[in-house]
Each structure stands twice: as C-alpha cells, then as structure tokens.
C-alpha cells in the first residue's frame, strides 16, 4: 500500500464529511429521521400516509445540489469510467444489495457508525471488504 499523495485531498474530504455530518444532524434532530438514502428511497416503494413528502424532499435536495452549486461556481471533477453495461449491472447490484442489507454508505457507514450500532459496523466492514476486493479483482487480476 502506497499513498497517492498527489491525489490525497484531506481538507476538502474532511469539510465535505463535516457537511454530510451536519445534514445527518439536521435530519435526526429536526425530523427524527435517519439520513440513510437506501431507507429513504425504500420507504417510497411502500408509501405510508404522511411519510412520503419528506422522503421526496430529501431526495430532491440531493438532485438539485449540483444545479445550485453551478450558480456559484464550476462543478467539481466527475469521471465515470464504467461503460453502460457495467453501470447497469453495478446499479442493479447496488440497489438490491443495499435494500437486502437495510442500508448503504450513508445509513450504515455514516449514521449507523455514528450511533455505534453493531449491525452497521458489521455491514460497513462487509461492504468495504467486498468493495476493496472487487476493485482488486477488476483492476489487478482481470484488468
């Protein structure tokens, strides 16, 4: 393991993480809700009365973030190397797996670990593990 110092961006990473933390704090303290995207979207598949609007509003906030960002400056670099076939496969796997495991990077990785939930710690270790392994196989064994 060698750290890629030229690409390491500690300050923007910490600041961006801090903003994510503030978002999580707002949603739990004001709305009493967990900022886990998988759970928020999952609740829209089985809509319950009075439990839909906030979910759509949160998701809408994510979608318009880059649009509002553009009002103040240039979008940060975004590079998607995967081709369309791989994106479809990856998307299907991500959607299914995150719902089966009751959460993703936000729900388990940020909110769950913040509450020291054993379930979320195990889930985060599990998806980080297969994430590392998948990239290793794709880039260094097959690539």
């Amino acid at each position: 393991m060698t750290i890629y110092w030229n690409h390491f961006t500690p300050w923007s990473a910490l600041a961006g993480g801090g903003l994510i933390g503030i978002s999580v704090a707002l949603l739990i303290l004001l709305n009493g809700r967990i900022a886990g995207i998988t759970g928020i979207i999952g609740g829209l598949f089985k809509p319950a009365k009075g439990d839909v609007a906030w979910r759509i509003a949160f998701t809408f906030g994510l979608i318009i973030a880059p649009i509002i960002w553009l009002l103040f400056g240039k979008l940060p670099e975004i590079t998607i190397d995967a081709n369309y076939g791989l994106l479809v496969v990856a998307g299907l796997i991500v959607g299914f797996g995150a719902r089966l495991g009751s959460g993703c990077t936000s729900g388990h990785g940020v909110c769950g670990i913040s509450r020291l939930s054993p379930r979320s710690i195990i889930a985060t270790l599990a998806f980080m593990g297969t994430g590392f392994l998948t990239v290793f196989i794709a880039r260094h064994l097959l690539g």
Binding site: I93, G129, T130
Partner: peptide, 23 residues
C-alpha cells in the same frame, strides 16, 4: 444484513457509485 452488505459492496466496487451520489 451481512449478505446484502457484501452484495452492495460488489456493486459499489464495480462502478464507484453508491445510492446518495447516484442522485
């Protein structure tokens, strides 16, 4: 929980996109 997280990680590793950034 464990199976779902393991599966999710594979998809995450394939494209580098998880649910929130997808939106």
């Amino acid at each position: 929980l464990v199976l779902g997280a393991l599966i999710f990680g594979i998809g995450w590793g394939l494209a580098g996109i998880c649910p929130a950034p997808a939106f």
